[in-house]
Amino acid sequence: MAASDVAGRSDATESSVWVRATACFTRWQGGDSAALDDLVRLMTPVLWHTVRAYGLTQAAAEDAVQNTWLALVRNRHQVHEAAAIGGWLLTTARRTAWRTKSTDTRTLAVEDTQLAANLPNSAAAEASALEQLASTALWQHVQTLDERCQRLLRIVAFDDRPDYAGLAQSLGMPIGSIGPTRRRCLDKLRSSLEKGGQL
């Protein structure tokens, strides 16, 4: 499989999520109540992946996402600059997820087998067979990483400007080790893919 199948596609909308979030928040601050709906629809998937990365069950993850939005509506004055809205939401979601996780020891890690069951019919009709093959291959290699790596990579995949201090606290890691760990995890995944002939 060629490199482009696994990791070569560009993600044009990547940076614009944060820009659009800032624009929505600015409009909302200006009194446009529909802008909050847009912000919710834009950022809810990002929040979902962030809290799921901490291993919350579906029900607890949904609760954490709802709580994050309720907290925003009640504490919007805490967001001093519109550009900080994305970071504020993710930090709040991470804090909630971490609190839930540390309170309930029964919460299981995201059910791997259950997730794998989503693969064959994922992305429905638009996904080409090749894309599905690429995802299946990547998933197999991601699963060989330790839990900390899997968690960190999922978080940074959805948050291109992570707040390292908050991340360090919620992952129980020293702040200085986030960057090196992230690189180490990516290197590990890359070499696993290379060995498997996927890159």
């Binding site: 696994v6 990791a7 596609r9 560009s10 993600d11 990547e14 992946h49 799921r52 690429a134 995802s135 990547l138 998933w139 991601v142 990579l153 999922r154 940074v156 995949a157 959805f158 990516l186 995944l189 890359r190």
Partner: peptide
């Protein structure tokens, strides 16, 4: 690779 991970999840 991070872009691919994002798409995967």
């Amino acid at each position: 690779l991070l872009v691919a991970i994002k798409r995967l999840y």
